[in-house]
Design a protein around this nucleic acid. Structure first.
Lengths: 326, 326
DNA sequence: GTGAAAGCGCTAACAA
DNA sequence: TTGTTAGCGCTTTCAC
């Protein structure tokens, strides 16, 4: 008898429960008053009818937005094709699901932080997660999104941040290298505009200077390809190098590969370390520092969803993961 | 003089352009008629006011939905923590961005495909991308979403699919092994409920039978950890094995690692191959077959977004990537 | 505690 | 070609 069952609306639920739409709304949105009896009848009817609130209608009336924007600063759109970012986006999507919110990603050119304003100036954007955050990017977060923005990386008074203790992780690595007798320790760095990279580099420098050892830096970009060429560069410039600190696991893996291809033994001749502890680090026995990307991303997403004032900065520790490469 | 600039609405644009809301709507939504003059004035006004259409309102009136759902079948929610899926979600989010659509991910228990109905029975869901698709899952796709659903894996008459030619890729691998003189070729398989895994296994079996060689299968699960234990199992059951075909790169890497740890030379004693060609496969010199996950995911997402009738099946080729492990 | 009524911003008949 | 008029489904004052 029932024709193609139309999707149940709040009106349907209200009618079935014998109350007004407003009452039904109050019960279902858990706001405002409603008698226990009304409550029960509405809940019942909703269940029976398989009622699912219409997110668009709700967002419209609340002016709330329907998706989170993950904005990623970088020199080119290729920053979006990166496994680190994949994890951030995917985790964010998982965290958002129960809230009925979707996720979008967008690249913000490093030299045009203003682009963020355009992207975020869309009422559909319910919140913002900043990745590879720079000062300039923080300055451009729209007022409307204050309290609904979190940064993975540096933050500001208006934008709470979640980050990892790169400095601590790198220090632990360098100390381990030193304790193992290495004295000619080089580093393949990351882009200087990234605070997380800078922190690692500074930790490396600080410790080496303190120990009276020479600083040997080669600029990198997190990639394995650059790790390869950087390995050659290091040994060319400083042939007596006995350890190479990679800014990331990918870099370190590239370094190791090139080294071995060139007949250099790892770790016998040169110890190599990474950073991140990606799944394959364990397979390849890479000594590294942990980097709980999923937990970090989940924390950032949760911050913008919960909206309760978050601590200005949440730092996840990074710990040494000892394996065979160093 | 101007107070806190309220977000410009269609009404504002219309007023500024001196036309009615409907005309403005027609111009901006690119539907229906409008004189060139009207067009220009509306566009102008919209630009000037920095007008951004309200996605929620639009979705509400069109009954269109505001996000894509990526539904992943699997035995446990841990399927969501997987780099393959990360790529799918992230790519989908990138493809959706220009359409103003967000993305959500959800796990559908393998034994309760009906859960999909509950998830998709939300008007906010504009489209569906199925991952690890099974027959049961296809049966449960709501009618409303026909034409707005795509599957990565198997499809049906109602649901177009995008997939990779696992059979072809695996065949190329096995042929290569054979050509290299290997005659005792074992395989570490994937879960049998996954069509893509079955296709690989069948290709392997078919070729071996054809060549009169013994089939040696050990059940795996795509993971490196299982690759490790499987390597031992293989050599324990069939000590003369001279090649191991992994269902995935992760599996193969696990196999290699265990083999080497046990003093078995790769590829001298045992050749090992993977499947996927993940970034680290090149670093570790793994012989494998290509698997353009991003392109596959982008194709699937585009299918649901464009809505024009897609071909029932799009098969991406997989080609042999020769490196040192086999 | 509850319901009537007024929109949120937009699109889509329908008239003009 | 354009404007008028209804809503889309929901939340939220504001009387009762």
């Amino acid at each position: 008898m029932t024709t193609v069952r139309r999707h149940a609306t709040l009106e349907d639920v209200a009618r079935a429960a014998g109350v007004s739409r407003s009452t039904a709304s109050r019960v279902l949105a858990e706001s405002g008053f409603a008698s226990p009896i009304a409550r029960e009848r509405v809940r019942d009817a909703a269940d029976r009818l398989g009622y699912v609130p219409n997110a668009a209608a709700r967002a419209l009336v609340r002016g709330a937005g329907v998706r989170l924007l993950v904005a990623v600063a970088g020199t080119s759109p290729t920053v979006l094709d990166d496994s680190y970012l994949d994890q951030v986006v995917s985790t964010t999507a998982q965290v958002c699901a129960p809230y009925g919110l979707g996720v979008t990603v967008a690249w913000v050119p490093l030299d045009q932080p203003g682009q963020l304003a355009r992207l975020a100036d869309d009422r559909a954007v319910a919140g913002l997660v900043l990745v590879n955050t720079t000062e300039a990017l923080l300055d451009v977060v729209p007022r409307r999104l204050y309290g609904r923005t979190a940064s993975i990386g540096i933050g500001s008074t208006a934008v709470p941040s979640v980050d990892i203790d790169n400095g601590g992780g790198t220090s632990a690595i360098v100390r381990h290298l030193y304790a193992a007798g290495r004295r000619r320790i080089a580093m393949v760095t990351g882009p200087a505009w990234l605070a997380c990279s800078r922190r690692s580099v500074e930790a490396y420098r600080g410790l080496l200077r303190e120990a009276g050892l020479p600083v040997r830096e080669v600029a990198g970009d997190f990639s394995a390809a650059r790790g390869r060429s950087a390995a050659r560069e290091v040994l060319h410039r400083w042939p007596d190098t006995d350890a190479i600190v990679g800014i990331s696991d990918a870099t370190a893996l590239g370094v190791i590969d090139q080294l071995r291809a060139d007949g250099v033994r790892v770790p016998a001749d040169v110890a190599v370390t990474g950073f991140d502890d990606i799944p394959l680090a364990s397979v390849t026995a890479l000594t590294t520092a942990s980097h709980p990307v999923r937990r970090i991303a989940a924390a950032a997403a949760t911050m913008v969803l919960e909206e309760r004032t978050a601590p200005p900065m949440t730092m996840f520790p990074s710990s040494l993961v000892l394996r065979e490469s160093a």
